[in-house]
Simulated scan of single mutants.
Amino acid sequence: MTTESDAQAESQRHASKMAKKKAARDKIMATKEGEKGLIIVHTGPGKGKSSSGFGMILRCIAHGMPCAVVQFIKGAWETGERRLLTENFGDLCQFHAMGEGFTWETQDRARDIAAAKAGWEKAKELIHDPRIRMVLLDEINIALRYDYLELDEVLAFLRAEKPPLTHVVLTGRNAAEGLIEAADLVTEMTLVKHPFRSGIKGQPGVEF
Protein backbone atom coordinates (compact mmCIF):
# COMPACT_ATOMS: atom_id res chain seq x y z
CA MET A 1 0.00 0.00 0.00
CA THR A 2 1.28 3.45 -0.97
CA THR A 3 1.73 5.73 2.03
CA GLU A 4 1.46 9.48 2.04
CA SER A 5 5.23 9.79 2.40
CA ASP A 6 5.73 7.48 -0.60
CA ALA A 7 3.37 9.62 -2.64
CA GLN A 8 5.21 12.79 -1.63
CA ALA A 9 8.58 11.25 -2.50
CA GLU A 10 7.26 10.16 -5.92
CA SER A 11 5.86 13.64 -6.51
CA GLN A 12 9.23 15.19 -5.66
CA ARG A 13 11.08 12.78 -7.98
CA HIS A 14 8.67 13.62 -10.79
CA ALA A 15 9.04 17.38 -10.21
CA SER A 16 12.84 17.08 -10.20
CA LYS A 17 12.81 15.01 -13.39
CA MET A 18 10.52 17.48 -15.20
CA ALA A 19 12.61 20.45 -13.99
CA LYS A 20 15.71 18.88 -15.57
CA LYS A 21 13.82 18.24 -18.80
CA LYS A 22 12.57 21.82 -18.87
CA ALA A 23 16.06 23.21 -18.29
CA ALA A 24 17.43 21.06 -21.12
CA ARG A 25 14.56 22.09 -23.41
CA ASP A 26 14.96 25.77 -22.58
CA LYS A 27 18.67 25.52 -23.38
CA ILE A 28 17.89 24.04 -26.80
CA MET A 29 15.18 26.60 -27.54
CA ALA A 30 17.52 29.46 -26.66
CA THR A 31 19.66 28.51 -29.67
CA LYS A 32 16.70 28.59 -32.11
CA GLU A 33 16.37 32.16 -33.31
CA GLY A 34 16.21 31.77 -37.08
CA GLU A 35 13.07 32.29 -39.15
CA LYS A 36 12.55 31.31 -42.77
CA GLY A 37 9.93 30.22 -45.22
CA LEU A 38 9.96 26.44 -45.25
CA ILE A 39 9.67 23.89 -48.03
CA ILE A 40 7.45 21.22 -46.49
CA VAL A 41 6.75 17.78 -47.97
CA HIS A 42 3.99 15.38 -46.90
CA THR A 43 4.40 12.02 -48.61
CA GLY A 44 4.08 8.27 -48.09
CA PRO A 45 1.37 5.64 -48.74
CA GLY A 46 -0.66 6.43 -45.63
CA LYS A 47 -3.69 8.69 -45.36
CA GLY A 48 -3.39 12.26 -44.07
CA LYS A 49 -1.01 14.05 -46.44
CA SER A 50 -3.50 16.55 -47.83
CA SER A 51 -5.35 16.71 -44.50
CA SER A 52 -2.15 17.79 -42.76
CA GLY A 53 -1.52 20.42 -45.42
CA PHE A 54 -5.01 21.82 -45.00
CA GLY A 55 -4.48 21.84 -41.25
CA MET A 56 -1.52 24.17 -41.80
CA ILE A 57 -3.64 26.36 -44.06
CA LEU A 58 -6.22 26.67 -41.28
CA ARG A 59 -3.48 27.63 -38.84
CA CYS A 60 -2.43 30.41 -41.20
CA ILE A 61 -6.02 31.63 -41.39
CA ALA A 62 -6.27 31.58 -37.59
CA HIS A 63 -3.17 33.82 -37.45
CA GLY A 64 -4.62 36.16 -40.07
CA MET A 65 -1.93 35.13 -42.56
CA PRO A 66 -2.95 35.20 -46.25
CA CYS A 67 -2.49 31.80 -47.91
CA ALA A 68 -3.44 29.86 -51.01
CA VAL A 69 -4.19 26.35 -52.26
CA VAL A 70 -3.53 24.87 -55.69
CA GLN A 71 -5.00 21.40 -56.24
CA PHE A 72 -3.21 19.48 -58.99
CA ILE A 73 -5.27 16.27 -59.10
CA LYS A 74 -8.45 16.48 -57.02
CA GLY A 75 -9.78 19.64 -58.63
CA ALA A 76 -12.76 17.83 -60.14
CA TRP A 77 -13.93 16.68 -56.69
CA GLU A 78 -16.21 18.64 -54.38
CA THR A 79 -14.34 18.38 -51.09
CA GLY A 80 -15.10 19.59 -47.60
CA GLU A 81 -11.87 21.60 -47.49
CA ARG A 82 -12.70 23.41 -50.68
CA ARG A 83 -16.21 24.27 -49.53
CA LEU A 84 -15.05 25.44 -46.10
CA LEU A 85 -12.28 27.66 -47.41
CA THR A 86 -14.12 29.21 -50.35
CA GLU A 87 -17.36 29.85 -48.48
CA ASN A 88 -15.89 31.11 -45.20
CA PHE A 89 -12.31 32.28 -45.65
CA GLY A 90 -12.10 33.54 -49.22
CA ASP A 91 -10.69 36.84 -47.97
CA LEU A 92 -7.62 35.11 -46.53
CA CYS A 93 -7.24 31.97 -48.63
CA GLN A 94 -7.27 31.71 -52.40
CA PHE A 95 -8.35 28.28 -53.69
CA HIS A 96 -7.53 27.10 -57.20
CA ALA A 97 -8.77 23.66 -58.25
CA MET A 98 -6.70 23.00 -61.38
CA GLY A 99 -6.75 19.21 -61.69
CA GLU A 100 -9.39 17.12 -63.42
CA GLY A 101 -9.02 13.89 -61.46
CA PHE A 102 -6.59 10.99 -61.40
CA THR A 103 -5.00 9.94 -64.68
CA TRP A 104 -7.09 6.77 -64.88
CA GLU A 105 -10.21 8.96 -64.79
CA THR A 106 -9.28 11.41 -67.54
CA GLN A 107 -7.45 8.80 -69.67
CA ASP A 108 -5.93 11.68 -71.60
CA ARG A 109 -2.24 12.33 -70.88
CA ALA A 110 -2.03 15.53 -72.92
CA ARG A 111 -4.99 16.95 -71.02
CA ASP A 112 -3.46 15.94 -67.68
CA ILE A 113 -0.16 17.59 -68.60
CA ALA A 114 -1.93 20.79 -69.66
CA ALA A 115 -3.87 20.92 -66.38
CA ALA A 116 -0.70 20.31 -64.33
CA LYS A 117 1.21 23.03 -66.18
CA ALA A 118 -1.64 25.48 -65.69
CA GLY A 119 -1.60 24.60 -61.99
CA TRP A 120 2.14 25.18 -61.80
CA GLU A 121 1.87 28.57 -63.49
CA LYS A 122 -0.78 29.58 -60.94
CA ALA A 123 1.39 28.22 -58.13
CA LYS A 124 4.37 30.31 -59.25
CA GLU A 125 2.20 33.40 -59.39
CA LEU A 126 0.93 32.81 -55.86
CA ILE A 127 4.37 32.01 -54.43
CA HIS A 128 5.76 35.20 -55.97
CA ASP A 129 3.08 37.29 -54.24
CA PRO A 130 4.77 38.76 -51.13
CA ARG A 131 1.43 39.08 -49.32
CA ILE A 132 0.85 35.30 -49.30
CA ARG A 133 2.61 33.51 -46.45
CA MET A 134 1.83 29.87 -47.32
CA VAL A 135 0.99 28.06 -50.56
CA LEU A 136 -0.28 24.47 -50.46
CA LEU A 137 0.47 22.51 -53.64
CA ASP A 138 -1.91 19.63 -53.07
CA GLU A 139 -1.00 16.35 -54.85
CA ILE A 140 1.79 17.99 -56.86
CA ASN A 141 3.95 14.95 -56.09
CA ILE A 142 1.65 12.84 -58.24
CA ALA A 143 1.99 15.30 -61.13
CA LEU A 144 5.77 15.09 -60.74
CA ARG A 145 5.72 11.29 -60.52
CA TYR A 146 3.87 10.99 -63.84
CA ASP A 147 6.19 13.57 -65.45
CA TYR A 148 3.39 16.05 -66.02
CA LEU A 149 5.82 18.61 -64.59
CA GLU A 150 9.61 18.83 -64.71
CA LEU A 151 11.11 18.17 -61.28
CA ASP A 152 14.22 20.21 -62.06
CA GLU A 153 12.08 23.21 -62.99
CA VAL A 154 10.09 23.00 -59.76
CA LEU A 155 13.25 22.66 -57.65
CA ALA A 156 15.02 25.50 -59.44
CA PHE A 157 12.06 27.80 -58.89
CA LEU A 158 11.78 26.96 -55.19
CA ARG A 159 15.50 27.55 -54.68
CA ALA A 160 15.81 30.78 -56.64
CA GLU A 161 12.43 32.50 -56.63
CA LYS A 162 10.52 31.57 -53.48
CA PRO A 163 10.42 34.61 -51.18
CA PRO A 164 12.48 34.08 -48.00
CA LEU A 165 9.50 33.98 -45.62
CA THR A 166 6.98 32.12 -47.78
CA HIS A 167 6.12 28.55 -46.79
CA VAL A 168 5.39 26.05 -49.58
CA VAL A 169 3.73 22.72 -48.76
CA LEU A 170 3.88 19.90 -51.34
CA THR A 171 1.73 16.81 -50.82
CA GLY A 172 1.28 13.43 -52.47
CA ARG A 173 2.78 9.98 -52.26
CA ASN A 174 6.11 9.03 -53.89
CA ALA A 175 7.83 12.37 -53.42
CA ALA A 176 10.98 12.55 -55.55
CA GLU A 177 14.32 12.16 -53.79
CA GLY A 178 15.44 15.54 -55.10
CA LEU A 179 12.43 17.20 -53.53
CA ILE A 180 13.00 15.42 -50.23
CA GLU A 181 16.62 16.61 -50.21
CA ALA A 182 15.60 20.20 -50.95
CA ALA A 183 12.87 20.30 -48.30
CA ASP A 184 13.25 21.69 -44.79
CA LEU A 185 10.53 19.48 -43.29
CA VAL A 186 9.51 16.04 -44.58
CA THR A 187 6.84 13.79 -43.09
CA GLU A 188 6.10 10.31 -44.40
CA MET A 189 2.63 8.93 -43.67
CA THR A 190 2.81 5.16 -43.11
CA LEU A 191 -0.11 2.93 -44.04
CA VAL A 192 -0.97 0.56 -41.20
CA LYS A 193 -4.62 -0.14 -41.89
CA HIS A 194 -7.23 1.32 -44.25
CA PRO A 195 -10.97 0.54 -44.56
CA PHE A 196 -10.79 0.64 -48.37
CA ARG A 197 -9.06 -2.74 -48.25
CA SER A 198 -12.08 -4.11 -46.39
CA GLY A 199 -14.52 -2.92 -49.03
CA ILE A 200 -15.46 0.40 -47.41
CA LYS A 201 -15.74 3.35 -49.78
CA GLY A 202 -14.41 6.84 -49.03
CA GLN A 203 -16.43 8.58 -46.32
CA PRO A 204 -17.39 12.27 -46.24
CA GLY A 205 -15.49 14.00 -43.47
CA VAL A 206 -12.79 11.35 -43.55
CA GLU A 207 -11.66 11.11 -47.17
CA PHE A 208 -13.08 14.30 -48.66
Rank of each mutant, 00 (worst) to 15 (best):
T3K: 05
T3N: 01
S5H: 08
A9S: 12
S11V: 00
H14N: 14
M18F: 09
K20I: 15
K22E: 09
A23W: 06
A24W: 13
I28S: 09
I28Q: 06
I28D: 04
M29V: 11
G34N: 02
E35T: 08
E35Y: 04
L38I: 06
H42T: 11
H42C: 05
T43S: 07
P45D: 13
K47A: 08
K47N: 03
K47D: 10
S51T: 15
G53H: 06
G55Y: 10
C60D: 15
C60Q: 14
I61S: 05
G64H: 11
G64C: 14
M65L: 15
V69Y: 04
V69G: 02
Q71M: 09
F72T: 09
F72V: 06
I73N: 00
I73G: 01
G75Q: 05
R82C: 06
R83T: 13
T86D: 01
G90T: 07
D91C: 01
L92E: 08
L92G: 11
L92M: 14
A97C: 10
G101L: 13
G101F: 01
F102V: 12
T103D: 11
W104A: 14
E105K: 03
D108A: 06
A110E: 14
D112G: 04
A115H: 01
A115T: 03
A118K: 13
E121T: 15
A123G: 11
E125T: 15
L126T: 00
L126V: 10
R131W: 04
M134G: 06
M134W: 00
I140H: 02
I140F: 09
N141A: 05
A143S: 11
R145M: 06
R145Q: 09
L151I: 04
E153P: 07
F157P: 03
R159I: 10
A160S: 12
A160N: 13
A160I: 11
V168Y: 00
V169Y: 00
V169Q: 04
L170D: 14
R173N: 09
N174K: 12
N174C: 07
A175R: 07
A175Q: 01
A176K: 07
L179M: 12
A182C: 09
L185I: 07
V186H: 04
E188L: 01
M189K: 02
T190L: 05
L191S: 13
V192Y: 13
K193I: 15
H194N: 08
H194L: 14
P195D: 11
R197G: 15
S198E: 14
I200C: 08
K201V: 04
V206C: 05
E207Q: 12
